[in-house]
Simulated assay, not measured.
Amino acid sequence: MVAAPGHALVTGGAGFLGSHLCELLLRNGFRVSCVDSFATGTATNVDHLREDPRFRLIEHDVTAPFPDVGDPTLVAHLASAASPRDYQRLPIETLHAGALGTMHALEVAERAGARFLLTSTSEVYGDPLEHPQRESYWGNVNPIGPRSVYDEAKRYAEALTMAHLRQRGTDVAIARIFNTYGPRMRADDGRMIPNFITQAIAGAPLTVAGSGTQTRSVCYVDDTVAGLYALVRSTLTGPVNIGNPRELSVRRIAEEIRDLVGSASVIESVPGAVDDPQRRCPDISLARRELGWEPQVTLRDGLRRTVDWFAGHRPDAAA
Rank of each mutant, 00 (worst) to 15 (best):
V2M: 09
A4M: 14
A8R: 02
G13C: 09
F16Y: 01
F16C: 01
H20V: 02
H20C: 11
C22E: 11
L24F: 07
V32S: 03
C34M: 13
S37T: 11
T40N: 06
G41Y: 05
V46A: 01
L49F: 00
R50E: 15
R54S: 12
L57I: 03
P65W: 11
P65V: 09
S83P: 01
S83K: 00
D86R: 11
Y87M: 01
Q88Y: 10
R89E: 15
E93F: 09
L95C: 12
A97G: 04
L100R: 13
L100D: 15
T102W: 00
M103A: 15
A109D: 01
L117W: 02
L118E: 04
T119G: 05
T119E: 10
S122V: 13
G126F: 00
P128R: 01
P132M: 09
E135C: 13
Y137A: 08
Y137D: 11
W138A: 15
R147C: 05
V149G: 08
A157C: 05
E158G: 05
T161G: 00
L165S: 13
R166Y: 13
T170C: 06
R176P: 14
F178P: 00
T180E: 06
P183R: 08
R184V: 00
A187V: 04
A187G: 11
G190A: 00
M192P: 08
I193L: 14
I197M: 00
I201S: 06
I201R: 07
I201K: 03
I201W: 05
I201E: 08
L206G: 02
T207N: 12
R216H: 06
C219I: 06
V225M: 06
L228Y: 07
S234C: 07
L236H: 10
L236G: 00
L236S: 07
P239A: 10
N241R: 06
P245D: 12
P245K: 04
V250G: 02
R251I: 14
R252M: 11
I253A: 08
A254F: 07
A254Q: 11
E256N: 09
L260Y: 08
L260R: 09
S265A: 14
I267P: 05
D275G: 06
D276F: 07
P277S: 09
C281P: 04
I284N: 01
S285G: 13
A287T: 05
R288M: 10
G292D: 07
E294S: 10
E294Y: 03
T298F: 02
V307L: 06
W309H: 08
F310I: 03
A311F: 06
A311L: 14
A317P: 03
A317F: 05
A319V: 13
A319W: 04
